[in-house]
Design a protein around this nucleic acid. Sequence first.
DNA 1: ACAAATAATGACCAAGTGGTCATCAGGGAT
DNA 2: ATCCCTGATGACCACTTGGTCATTATTTGT
Lengths: 199, 199
Amino acid sequence: MTSAPDATPPAEPARRRRRDPEAHRAAILDAAREAFAEHGYALATIRDIARRAGVTHGLVMRHFTSKEQLFLCAVPGTRDLDEIVAGDVASLPERVAAGFVARMETNAADDPFVTLIRSAASNERAAIDLYTAMRRRSVAAYRTVLDGDDVDVRVELMAAQLIGVAFNRYIVKAGPLAAMTAGELTAHLSRVLRGIMFG
Amino acid sequence: MTSAPDATPPAEPARRRRRDPEAHRAAILDAAREAFAEHGYALATIRDIARRAGVTHGLVMRHFTSKEQLFLCAVPGTRDLDEIVAGDVASLPERVAAGFVARMETNAADDPFVTLIRSAASNERAAIDLYTAMRRRSVAAYRTVLDGDDVDVRVELMAAQLIGVAFNRYIVKAGPLAAMTAGELTAHLSRVLRGIMFG
DNA sequence: ACAAATAATGACCAAGTGGTCATCAGGGAT
DNA sequence: ATCCCTGATGACCACTTGGTCATTATTTGT
């Protein structure tokens, strides 16, 4: 019976069992956002998430029932797009570019955009659904200020550009797009998005 | 008619052990290309590849030593880009768009482009390396016909556009970009690429 | 002070992974 | 025919995964 769980590693020998469901739940969600963005849905593991949150993987299951549920709870939809879109149409490309870069630059580490790109690779239903919902919402937002029957296509082409840029700069992190400054990126993106939107 | 021509009974009870290393090697490579494109590096499994190739997973290991080796052998670099690039610069965007769409449309199922996008999501060294090599080669090809100090950036922005489009149309397979015909896609892509390249 | 309620744990499970290896069998050379 | 090299197999290994559940420890109500 040497079932000693772990012979007191130097750090914390008497780690008292905390009892605080709300805090734990929040910690798990944060950890999940991080892990899912870092590895994508399929490759992120519940145990790793539990470790980051400082709890056991059993507790994660207790709170969220399944990996898919956790994913759905942790990864939010797109935020603040409406604010960016609102305004005069002429400068829309600049606002979109600036908004995108600002958002990604401050914390690409657990941005849903990155998460969904990484996750969609695995054909996981949950990820595809979230991605679809996100796209639908984007198109709807743009529709409030743009018109024309090919708005959808143009919005989609802009989204494609952003996906590609995100892929290179924030996922693969190599090449010219990853090397340039945020300002330069914004400038290039403004020009390209303008071309897509109004070209 | 009434007598069943039992050339191939539903299940093969006496599956004789074939001995044909070259054919098997080729079959494994084909199966690997397919599987890696379908699931990405991390999520593709050697056993599944073996199954598709009609051999045992032990044989796959025997031929390729490791999953990473198999990946490197199976996923080739970009082909035929030089031919597309060669020609008058004025119509480059159209040729690139048409070449891209033609290639993806005929067999996106095991295109290295899709494979690398799906694989890079998992931060796998082998995938990242292949992707980097592919990008380097692309830039080199374009450099033979274009000049200017921001060629690299423009090429990268075009690549980003193609990645985004590939992501929507051939990976997620949803939305306007997935719904339109190949011809329409080519037209849109021509316009957008032209804007990126010469805008 | 005690007991009921329940948050948290950790042992456990079946399934699946990449990788190893003793063994077997096909077929060319003799 | 026979031998023997080696292509091919499948049992096996250590490990990881998502998920379950009996136990244990901590609050809270009384």
